[in-house]
Design a protein around this nucleic acid. Structure first.
Lengths: 356, 356
DNA sequence: ATTAGCACTCTATCAAGGTGAGTGCTAAAG
DNA sequence: CTTTAGCACTCACCTTGATAGAGTGCTAAT
């Protein structure tokens, strides 16, 4: 049995675990005792390493794909690595920052587009899958809503949020509102609701409908109805980018996995559980393998962070990659990207400051 | 040598070719002479069939994967099949029509969303990849443009086309236009350009800029500038749907192919050549294998059709599948979908008629 | 013109055997 | 008590060879 103190592993075990994970991250092949001595030249013989590895396996940090293969890190191993073994954590990733600044120049200010580009860039630099989520109903604050009459009997409802997200929908003008009516309605809604989150507005509208149903005159009542129909569809946009990149990784040789992943990407809706979990905690989170609430992603790891507007969590930006992904550099990439997005909201140049 | 008349193949060759393709469509395995006699019980022995097949191969309709395998259709074989051998062509696909009608109820009238749903549905029913392209600059007619002031120094430019497409962009309000200015500008643009295609407007704006640069007062001039910046980004939306479905086909066992296809789907831009080709011809087109101008799709076939608004071709709807796809049913599906979309434009119920 | 017969070709599959990397255990050395 | 050398063992992987099966082309007979 190896020495181990209460808090974790002894120095030797840590060194061996670190070396195994490091090596496995570079190339996904089970690593054996001889290989370790050759490569990292600890002071110990393969036999000693074997003993240590046996202990690590017993403790659940390693596993063998089959009896006579080398060891491979388990989720728990990665977890320990992430928590305790990563040393070099570059504070900021300058190449990403440069790239983002450059992209930012060209993309103007539509938040959805900006988030899309950030996700692409993150994927491009990390060589993994990029994940971006725009603010949802809780995070988005209504800035302005506008009604544009359209064709004979339609209205285009257009909404802009503080975060710079535009959503629109075409709705039937069943009540035959005139242009003037629409203007009045929009004015009312803006006066009443601007500055509130979409979620608050939704709740308000529901209460309104139930408790004070007859209190307002019909124009307003019907306006609310229309707006309610519209606002109920408001939802986050989910961006995923870089599928082709990830298929080039050596572990994606299995059809099964590829199909699962493709399905997940096509049906982004499947990701809500994961996104919720990330939104539940502040800042950066690492989700390794089986820890992932989304079954199809349990063969992978996720590094993601919330970005925020002021003290309100807005959305999520992150990376999805294989379990053996390069955690330290990916973590710094995601941190940088999240900071970039938060900055845009909170201080960002050229009048981007919130008016509130 | 088999008999062949000038126009094509003799009766027997046609029968054999038909049977081979039919069988290969059902399951992608080289089909041999004995199998054919068993299955289709022509009056001839395997040896006779072999002679016929040898002739067909010489003429380029069939090929052998290797010397002692059965035959497989070539692109030319499929082409002949599509042109001359398909008999059953159901005029309308009722299940698709029903599904589309049902979806249509729930999706309201945003053209992009509608096209997306149609593409999904087409994929779902055909079990191949669905392709949808919304009207581009030539096909889209400006209905209305609106400027919504936003934050201190931004303007959200919002445009609605006759086809029911909404596009928006946030632009800097460098000139400090007031709400009144914006209204005036929008009024001017709408008066001047509504009813013209985006392409025409673009060209007009360019000419304007060059030849009559100083003719207008500055307000209008600057408005045009802003609008030009916006309108230059107008482009078709390309929808692709059903990737996971197509991965279930037995031929997609090759990583190489999967990667190519994934790349194509992620970078939809690669499809422009194909889309242009389809837009160049009226109505339905079948593109088989190597005929495809997009290299990554040369292992597949495409059945696609333009849909139209009046006599103007608007966009494209279609199916991408393996070369051995079920041409007859797919053709009828695509025809139905195209008709559905055209109808929505041209006569469709509930006031969908164009105001023009 | 058709077909039966036959030799031939090629793929797919399976079993057998060898190789090499890696292990666990034990006993000796430090 | 810790470390290490030695050794037997396991297992994945590769190569090889043998076999079966499907299909072909050619030729000669019908």
């Amino acid at each position: 049995m190896a020495k181990r103190d209460i808090e974790g592993l002894d120095e030797r075990s840590r060194a061996v675990l670190w070396a195994i994970i490091k090596s496995y991250i570079e190339s996904p092949e089970p690593v054996g005792s001889r290989f370790l001595t050759r490569r990292y030249g600890f002071g110990w013989s393969p036999a000693t390493i074997r003993n240590i590895m046996a202990d690590l396996e017993e403790m659940g940090y390693l596993m063998q794909p089959h009896t006579s293969a080398g060891r491979v890190p388990t989720d728990r191993g990665y977890r320990y690595y992430v928590e305790s073994l990563i040393t070099e954590r570059p504070d900021e990733d300058s190449s990403l920052m440069e790239e983002l600044e450059r992209e930012f120049q060209s993309v103007a200010d539509d938040m959805d587009r900006l988030l899309g580009v950030t996700t692409d860039t993150l994927s491009k630099i990390s060589r993994y899958l990029g994940l971006g989520v725009s603010p949802g109903a809780e995070g988005s604050v209504l800035r302005q809503v506008e009604f544009v009459p359209y064709r004979e009997d339609r209205i285009a409802v257009i909404m802009v949020t503080e975060e710079g997200i535009i959503r629109h929908k075409i709705i039937k003008n069943d009540y035959g509102f005139s242009q003037g009516d629409l203007k009045q309605i929009a004015g009312y809604l803006n006066r009443e609701f601007a500055g509130h989150t979409i979620k608050e507005i939704r709740e308000h509208l529901v209460n309104e409908m139930i408790s004070e149903k007859r209190k307002f005159d019909t124009l307003v009542e019907r306006a609310m109805e229309i707006y309610r129909d519209f606002i109920y569809e408001y939802d986050s946009n989910i961006f995923l980018s870089g599928m082709t990149r990830i298929l080039d990784l050596p572990e994606f040789t299995d059809l099964r996995q590829i199909k699962d992943l493709t399905r997940t990407i096509e049906n982004k809706h499947a990701l809500v559980k994961l996104i919720d979990q990330i939104m539940d905690s502040d800042g950066l989170q690492v989700v390794i393998g089986m820890e992932n609430p989304v079954e199809e992603l349990q063969g992978m790891s996720v590094i993601a962070s919330t970005y925020s507007e002021g003290d309100r969590k807005a959305g999520v930006i992150g990376i999805i990659g294989p379990r053996r992904m390069n955690y330290s550099s990916s973590i710094s990439l995601v941190e940088t990207a999240a900071r970039f997005l938060s900055n845009l909201y909170n201080e960002g140049g050229e009048g981007w400051k919130r008016g509130k």
